[in-house]
Write a protein that binds this DNA or RNA. Sequence first.
DNA 1: ATGGACATGTTATAGTATTACATCACTGAT
DNA 2: ATCAGTGATGTAATACTATAACATGTCCAT
Lengths: 137, 137
Amino acid sequence: MNDHVHVDPAALTKNQALVFSALSDANGPLTAYAILDELRGDGFKAPLQVYRALEKLIEGGLVHRLESLNAFVACRHPTGCSHQWAAFAICESCGDVKEFSPDKAMDLLKDWAENDGFKLAKTTVELRGQCPACLAT
Amino acid sequence: MNDHVHVDPAALTKNQALVFSALSDANGPLTAYAILDELRGDGFKAPLQVYRALEKLIEGGLVHRLESLNAFVACRHPTGCSHQWAAFAICESCGDVKEFSPDKAMDLLKDWAENDGFKLAKTTVELRGQCPACLAT
DNA sequence: ATGGACATGTTATAGTATTACATCACTGAT
DNA sequence: ATCAGTGATGTAATACTATAACATGTCCAT
Ligand SMILES: [Zn+2]
Ligand SMILES: [Zn+2]
Ligand SMILES: [Zn+2]
Ligand SMILES: [Zn+2]
């Protein structure tokens, strides 16, 4: 079920480590070009350097892509979580993103797929709305 | 709960009707630029004509945006479905897209949001994998 | 040392979406 | 009839996101 293996961060290549570090330092999602700008001081010059690193980081379960933002975020989960079943709540006011694992809802989606004969590889679940902090203001 | 109101297709403007017709005639999702190419014979010349029409059609609940494809699809549901809670199964082999309404799973996501104090406006739920037809080959 | 696998560098290009500004059509009030 | 307000449209330019193509480098196993 969990066929994404968490990669030992120590095993990352130089570019992968730089991109992961940029995402980890950010307090929210970054676009690929924002990452590029962060890393120009480290010698990055072309978007492909970022996209190639992101591809590996996503494969390794260290980073998620947020489809509805065209942006990327470092996984905050402990090693071993099931990345292809993660979900995100995205605040449309402040941009804050919270990752969570709606296991029950995912099980129901898996059930739907099974009943339909659809071989499920991964899901994209992104909630849009307003976070508690923004609602409180 | 259902704050998206289905628009009377007869009330569409000329451009909106053309875009909706292009999407309805297609047997799957189309990108904005694919729609533009479809409609050049009808006088369309710029992407903005497509994007503006899509915006209204999505507001009216006649069209869905598929975030993980950067593409758009006509809603096949009967009038009155809850568009902000629709889900899609996308075949990565043939590109087929099936819309469905996983009400139970959505209820669980709504519950999660409520417990977290997150004011949920809409969800993006997109399943990726292989459809029954492609699995059969 | 040689070949293979993989990471990287660099340039160019493709694909997606929005900004800015001008114009037009309709409606309602004067 | 004129005018103002609203919303739709036309057009050009630009911004943003992602990949193709090809050259080079690095490391390890043979
Ligand atoms: Zn995660
Ligand atoms: Zn917020
Ligand atoms: Zn629908
Ligand atoms: Zn298929």
